[in-house]
Amino acid sequence: MSDTETQTTDETQTTETKTKVFFGVSLELAGKTISLDPKNDINEIKEKGIEVELPAGERVYLGTVGTSFNTILQTLGAVDEDKRASFLNEDGTLNTEELPDITVLQNAANLLVEAGLYVDEFHVRIPGSTANQTVTDQTTSEETTVVKKDKTAYTVGLSAEWQDDAGQLIDGLDLKLRGIYFKISNEE
């Protein structure tokens, strides 16, 4: 991608064009490729770092919640690699022994593991190595340069949705659950 900037000086009335170059990344999550849009010009990476995100309005289908949930939690560090959600069997189906014997709750849990899973938000920020900040001490008026060392930050927003009447939780009641949304983030 490129963006063009135009500058005009009063003395010479010449126009200088500066072309910016951006690069993004493609990541794999639960076996699906997610292409992330760059926010910083490559000439700014040393100072500003790398920042990429899922383009606005774009979403990526990952499969069903049952087949993808454990892989995503492990990838994002929410659970250890050798652990999985106890309410799921290895094939992604519901392990009903881990839930209370309440029909409505088990119906809702079955709907959840069969729902389609989508990535709706994905943002990664890796800080630059030379991002310095000048701080003035109010008592002595001395300026000090502080090296700002932010951590790598991420946010991933996922939604689970189903179609038709699959969200009918209680027969005879016009109350349907269409989906859920959850977010995992270490950004402040």
Rank of each mutant, 00 (worst) to 15 (best):
E5L: 15
Q7S: 11
T8M: 11
Q13P: 00
T19N: 13
F22V: 09
G24Y: 04
A30R: 10
S35G: 06
D37I: 01
K39R: 13
N40M: 08
D41I: 00
N43M: 06
K46R: 12
I50Y: 05
I50N: 04
L54Q: 03
L54D: 03
P55I: 06
A56M: 08
G57M: 08
E58V: 09
R59V: 03
G63R: 01
G63Y: 06
T64H: 08
T64L: 11
V65P: 05
T67I: 12
T67G: 07
F69Q: 12
N70E: 05
N70L: 09
T75W: 10
T75Q: 15
T75P: 05
T75G: 09
G77D: 08
G77F: 10
A78V: 14
E81W: 03
R84C: 12
R84W: 04
S86Q: 10
S86Y: 05
F87H: 07
N89A: 12
D91S: 01
D91E: 02
L94S: 07
L94P: 08
T96G: 10
T96D: 13
E98P: 03
E98M: 15
L99I: 03
V104Q: 15
A109K: 00
N110A: 11
L111P: 00
A115C: 10
L117R: 01
V119M: 05
H123S: 12
R125K: 15
S129A: 13
S129H: 01
N132F: 02
T134G: 01
T134C: 01
V135I: 12
T136V: 14
T136D: 06
Q138K: 14
T139Y: 06
T144A: 11
V146M: 06
V147N: 07
D150Q: 11
K151Y: 07
K151A: 15
A153L: 13
W162Q: 11
Q163T: 13
G167A: 04
Q168L: 14
Q168H: 12
L169C: 07
I170M: 12
D171N: 13
D171L: 02
L173S: 08
L173C: 01
K176L: 14
L177W: 15
G179D: 06
I180Y: 12
Y181T: 11
Y181D: 13
Y181S: 13
N186C: 08
E187T: 14
